[in-house]
Amino acid sequence: MRDPREETIPNANGSGFNRRDFLRGSGAAVAVTALATSDQGATAQDAKKANVASAKAQDVTLNVNGKEHKLSLEPRVTLLDTLRDDLNLTGCKDVCDTTNCGACTVLIDGKPTYACSRLAHECVGKKVTTIESLAANDPVVAGFVKHDAQQCGFCTPGFVMATKAFCDKNPGATLAQVRAGLGGNICRCGTYVGITACAMELVTKKGGK
């Protein structure tokens, strides 16, 4: 319910590996242990650090916002760090780095995905779309402004991408569906009322056309 995005959930015909599975497999187990017995006090974050191996940088070509970028990256580098540090596309934010908050949401082949859940090398041959590609008059951006669906704004680009993907795919969605469909993102400032109003307006418009 919380994470309706198929792309971030392991699927049978995929590669069988993504960073999210990896974190789930190791990190979550450790986190459970920590909460249950607290013997080592290890947290999911510690586990992540301990388990990621380094390797030599390799050439990779990424298609981001319709442009090909040639980069040299170690296999362990996430799509999120690549977008932010190498391509300076900083609209996607690094908030949790553990696939919980949605601040890093981008589209991969049109599907909303946590960029922190992907390695850059996994994205070869795919089309990555970031918030920077949205037109200046994008209706989702305009809707966020109109409904004041933002305060500090740090979660906002991720929410805009999630909202865009949800509303494009679900014209005519109900309030309950909007609430479930946007449940993969977190805002600390508390802008959910504006976001809900914005999404409802968008799905109603689309549903009615």
């Binding site: 986190a31 999911a44 553990t98 909007v178 946007l182 449940g183 993969g184 993102n185």
Partner: peptide, 22 residues
């Protein structure tokens, strides 16, 4: 905070629970 280890055991966005939009 865990009494035994003294550690902050939910210092991440998975176990530090914040409400979501629903």
């Amino acid at each position: 905070l865990d009494n035994k280890t003294g550690r902050y055991i939910n210092a991440d966005l998975e176990n530090y629970k914040l409400p979501r939009i629903g």
